[in-house]
Design a protein around this nucleic acid. Structure first.
Lengths: 220, 220
DNA sequence: CCTTTTCTGTTGTAAAAACAACATAATAAA
DNA sequence: TTTATTATGTTGTTTTTACAACAGAAAAGG
């Protein structure tokens, strides 16, 4: 696995010369860890001063409330990052980060990221700007999710989410990273109600699906 | 109005000596504007490279979806900031920022904020770190709002939001910055259904209210 | 002051979601 | 392969919400 090549795809290392990444990594006290499937990388209430970047595999960010309701906040794939927020604010995590499959993570010390180092790393300034951009993007993604779940009906939520995914993948046929229960927990609806809404939509010719692969059809 | 004194309360100017603020402001190309009530400071689709900080008054961040549903994303008070995200990402705004009353705003050029200037302003480094913290906090606030609206019932949403406010103000009696319609749009519920739920809760002795002032009672 | 407008609460009805219970399909494990 | 386990879909019932229509209270404007 070529770490540098993966990091090129991450927001944090945008416009940083591949040749400089190795140096930067030691400056950022980088370390990698491997986790099995369904492993809790960060648990509720935990503190950390490291952010993580997924090098391979995937994970979900999940929240459990007082009454045991489960919410899938987001799904993380390769080159996605997590824990920036709790690392930056030094507050305890209110969510759980749990792997969906065997996953390798690169951890970076957040203080090293946001303060220019004494050694005068050439690309440290870019790194900070990228960090600002990364946090802004996370913000936008949360807003995007908010747009889905503020919809009034299950059908609207589904259409809002699925059409967003189609747009992102630039194809009307695409796979989603969730099974039905996870999708329901992501959209904050009831799984069985969502299932029956999906079949209703299929019978109306709005979409087609097999497992987690969906095809949307235009309205006429 | 003492701008420096207000900025001391803002996240962006945390731990920056009041004496240095004046210098920084010119470096950040700061400008102030005054807006009347119900004025749209930023409209959907607009671009900007300035972030704003409220010096006096208040505003709401509002979103209108395709079908005309209205959502109040957040309420901004004195020393709160807005538009960081669209300024940082250079993407068009998907929300509207609209004043709730006559409001004065300080605008700062975002590029000046996130890049260390050549003049070598002493506190520019702190500014960047504060910017990272600010974006992280916005993130957490979005998450907090998400916790409210992911609740299954109107009652749970109300209790989630109101108890959060009580915690924030450290008092079981507190005022909220919304009228009923705005509160409903914030919690993504129907105004009239919310009203009747509120009276039901009052009759059950859970809380008391007059206009926008609420008092929560402990459960026994 | 009165008038007008806006805000809030109430109620009944129609629509939708939550829940429970179960059937079937797909997958993993023995 | 067979069995066990998990994922998905279906249906009927109960509960909750959305919607509409309206009444009274409060606020704004003249």
């Amino acid at each position: 696995m070529d770490v540098v090549q993966i990091l090129e795809r991450s927001v944090l290392f945008t416009r940083i010369q591949p040749g400089n990444v190795e140096d930067l990594l030691s400056c950022l006290k980088a370390r990698t860890s491997t986790f099995p499937k369904d492993y809790t990388i960060i648990d509720e209430g935990e503190y950390t001063d490291e952010m993580g970047i997924i090098l391979s595999g995937s994970a979900n960010i999940v929240r459990h409330d007082f009454w045991g309701n489960r919410t899938v906040v987001a799904n993380l794939g390769v080159a996605d990052s997590f824990a920036e927020t709790i690392a930056c604010t030094q507050l305890p995590s209110e969510v759980v980060v749990i792997t969906c499959e065997p996953t390798i993570v690169l951890f970076l010390n957040i203080h090293q990221v946001i303060t220019t180092c004494r050694k005068g790393c050439v690309h440290h300034q870019s790194l900070i700007e990228n960090m600002v951009k990364l946090l802004s993007q996370k913000n936008l993604e949360l807003m995007k999710k908010m747009n889905h779940i503020t919809k009034r009906s299950t059908r609207e939520k589904l259409l809002s989410y699925l059409s967003e995914e189609a747009k992102k993948r630039k194809s009307r046929t695409f796979s989603i990273p969730f099974d039905r229960q996870q999708l329901a927990d992501y959209l904050c609806v009831e799984r069985s109600a969502m299932s029956s809404e999906l079949s209703k939509m299929r019978s109306e010719g709005l979409l087609e699906y097999q497992k987690s692969t969906f095809t949307l059809y235009e309205e006429e």
